[in-house]
């Protein structure tokens, strides 16, 4: 049983060479024995018959193994074809994997961009302001003393160009700078930045904040040039705004 198991573990080549060695040895022994017995004229002791039987047995074994080897050669051919097939499939799979990776990358980028877009849409929806209100506000700014103070402006007159100090403070910039009512004088720019405040050079500084400057900035005939209306006409202006916005909307619809 042991010889059977070792024979099964051995490669066919090893077994073939081993049997061939046996054949060589046995044939040599047989020939030598026959030669010796003939030269010495000794009666054969039957040993040569045993050797002959062994030789025949090994020869049959050799032929069987040669047949097995032929079959293994055919199987080897089939295996080579299969190996080629495996290589081809491997390269196909690698190609497919590469394409899938590319697709994944493209999709990941697209998803990221879409998410960013959704974020900005969400942000815009949360802080939505009606366009009509913006137009109204724009008209209000342009129709009142938004650009420059009226000609007959004197200190203490509330009519002044936008934005006023109060509006600046209530705006986003004002909140960012956290401006105190008495200004930021005495702070160095570094300190102000560290404290979350704007340095003086960066604080909004408009000509109308200083009387001398605002008077100096005003052109001599500026009231006539710009045709600003006196105070108290704001209500009428708002009516104009309504009329203008209606006109513009109707004109735009006409153009369509």
């Amino acid at each position: 049983r042991e010889t059977m198991s070792t024979a099964a573990e051995k490669s066919t080549k090893e077994r073939l060479l081993s049997v061939l060695d046996d054949l060589e040895v046995l044939s040599r022994e047989l020939i030598e024995m026959l030669a010796l017995s003939r030269s010495q004229k000794l009666p054969q002791a039957g040993e040569d018959t045993q050797i002959l039987e062994l030789l025949v047995q090994r020869d049959r074994e050799f032929q069987e193994l040669m047949d097995v080897a032929q079959q293994q050669g055919k199987v080897h051919q089939e295996m080579q074809l299969l190996e080629k097939e495996v290589e081809k499939r491997d390269s196909d799979i690698q190609q497919l994997q590469k394409q899938l990776k590319e697709a994944e990358h493209i999709l990941a980028t697209a998803v990221y961009q879409a998410k960013e877009k959704l974020k900005s849409i969400d942000k815009a929806r949360k802080g939505s302001i009606s366009s009509e209100e913006i137009i109204k506000y724009a008209h209000r700014i342009s129709a009142s003393n938004a650009v420059c103070a009226p000609l007959n402006w004197v200190p203490g007159d509330p009519r002044r160009p936008y934005p006023t100090d109060l509006e600046m403070r209530s705006g986003m910039l004002g909140h960012m700078a956290n401006l105190p009512t008495n200004g930021v004088n005495g702070h160095l720019p570094g300190d102000a930045l560290a404290a979350g405040r704007l340095p003086e050079v960066l604080t909004p500084h408009y000509p109308f904040q200083s009387m001398d400057v605002s008077v100096g900035m005003l052109p001599p005939h500026h009231g006539n040039d710009f045709g600003l209306e006196p105070p108290g006409h704001n209500k009428e202006n708002e009516d104009d705004v309504e009329a203008m916005s209606t006109d513009s909307s109707s004109s735009s619809s006409d153009s369509d």
Binding site: A8, E9, K10, S11, T12, K13, L16, L17, L20, V68, A69, Q71, Q72, G73, V75, H76, Q77, E78, M79, L82, E83, E85, V86, R89
Partner: peptide
């Protein structure tokens, strides 16, 4: 001739196993 014969470096049993594996792979 034995040295040049292809596919006899393994026993028939082992070779059949390898063949089966290759078929499975494909």
């Amino acid at each position: 001739q034995i040295s040049n014969m292809p596919g006899i470096d393994s026993s028939p049993v082992e070779q059949q196993q390898q063949l089966g594996m290759l078929r499975d792979q494909v």
